[in-house]
């Protein structure tokens, strides 16, 4: 048997019930039950619907993860769980379940930050995290640029979105273009047929004054409005909207700003490793442009495979395993959930 810590991680911050099991830096299983289809007709995640789905999926998902990994619960070294940020009612289901496991099994529990988990998951994909690493997390809920000297206890925020998250802009533009929710994958697909320089959409917070005051912050609300206005103008004139070109040009505006700022952050903080995580990291153009710009700048790019970029239990288990490996104190059994947990707080 290996001495490396065997950790089960639970993630319920939004609409995915995720349970992952990691041994040290090796992913054993990543099980996800998603309620995304139940939310599609509302065009966004309905908190109560998500919470009800978590309750129903929780034990079956734990059971399936253990079975598929061939792991007995009593062999676990620790339980880790997302304690925030996220939807309050959804977080509670996962945290309560994790506490029940920890208590019943007599194992330590680690309540961890969802965002730090997005960073830590790459350890099971690409090995130990260089210290420091620059991390850009882009999803429907977050757009953050983080300097990460130590993912278990030192995560620093360089900037984040001032308004919409990047993924949210994808959802909204998808709606304008008549594409289904969630918008990210559909915009990405439509954009492959389009011309990304067909329309010159605005790049938020990239001009002189903004670069002084919001050097590593993002803004996607103006871009989203610009796309909506551009489409409306065509529609009002009775013209066909070139969906592929709009998708490609919008997507280019987003990934251009993201990668430009991420590489600037690497340069100014003298960091040689850039990690991109979160659901938008599955975007094919973001991956391609980031790779191109990292190659040019001599920066090593790390992006977990798409399945590990979206919310999952493996990322929580991966961070938990790091906490154990680094000898961090477990959380108290009375640990709270924190729907707006700051990114700089790795552990609850």
């Amino acid at each position: 048997m290996s001495d490396e810590p065997l950790v089960l991680g639970i993630e319920t911050s939004c609409d995915e019930t995720g349970v992952g099991i990691v041994r040290g830096q090796t992913l054993l299983v990543d099980t996800v039950a998603s309620s995304v289809e139940e939310h599609a007709r509302f065009g966004g995640v309905v908190p109560e619907v998500a919470s009800r789905a978590h309750l129903e999926a929780m034990v079956p998902t734990i059971e399936r993860a253990c079975r598929e990994a061939g792991v007995q619960l009593r062999d676990l070294d620790a339980i880790s769980v997302t304690s925030g940020p996220g939807l309050a009612g959804a977080l509670l289901v996962g945290v309560a379940s994790a506490k029940a496991l920890a208590l019943a099994l007599g194992k330590p529990i680690y309540g961890v930050n969802h965002l730090a988990s997005h960073v830590a998951v790459d350890i099971v994909e690409h090995g130990p995290l260089p210290e420091p690493t620059m991390a850009m997390l882009v999803s429907g809920g977050h757009s953050s640029l983080l300097l990460v000297p130590d993912v278990t206890n030192d995560v620093r925020s360089l900037g984040s979105t001032m308004d919409d998250a990047a993924g949210e802009a994808f959802d909204k533009v998808a709606r304008v273009l008549g594409l289904p929710f969630p918008g990210g994958p559909h915009v990405d697909r439509a954009a492959r047929e389009g011309n990304r320089i067909a329309i010159d959409f605005p790049r938020g917070l990239t001009t002189g004054r903004d670069m002084e005051r919001h050097r590593f912050d993002f803004s996607f609300s103006g871009l989203k409005t610009a796309v909506a206005r551009w489409v409306e103008t065509r529609q009002r004139a009775g013209e066909t909207v070139p969906v592929a070109d709009v998708a490609a040009s919008f997507q280019e505006a987003v990934v251009d700003v993201l990668t430009r700022k991420a590489l600037l952050a690497c340069k100014e903080h003298d960091v040689e490793h850039l990690l991109i995580g979160g659901g938008v990291a599955a975007n094919s153009r973001l991956r391609a442009l980031a790779q191109e710009r990292c190659d040019k700048a001599g920066v090593n790019l790390r992006v977990p495979r798409p399945g590990l970029c979206t919310d999952n239990g493996a990322m929580v288990a991966a961070l938990g395993a790091q906490m154990v490996a680094k000898g961090r104190e477990p959380s108290d059994l009375g640990l709270p959930t924190d729907s707006s947990m700051p990114v700089t707080l790795v552990q609850a």
């Binding site: 911050s13 939004c14 609409d15 995304v36 939310h39 509302f42 065009g43 966004g44 995640v45 309905v46 908190p47 996220g86 939807l87 969802h114 997005h118 999803s139 429907g140 809920g141 977050h142 919409d164 998250a165 993924g167 949210e168 994808f170 959802d171 929710f181 969630p182 990210g184 995580g277 979160g278 659901g279 938008v280 990291a281 599955a282 970029c309 979206t310 919310d311 729907s339």
Partner: peptide, 12 residues
Amino acid sequence: APAPPSKKSTLG
């Protein structure tokens, strides 16, 4: 009603 955008992470 869908969650207020700042509270969700639909795409991870």
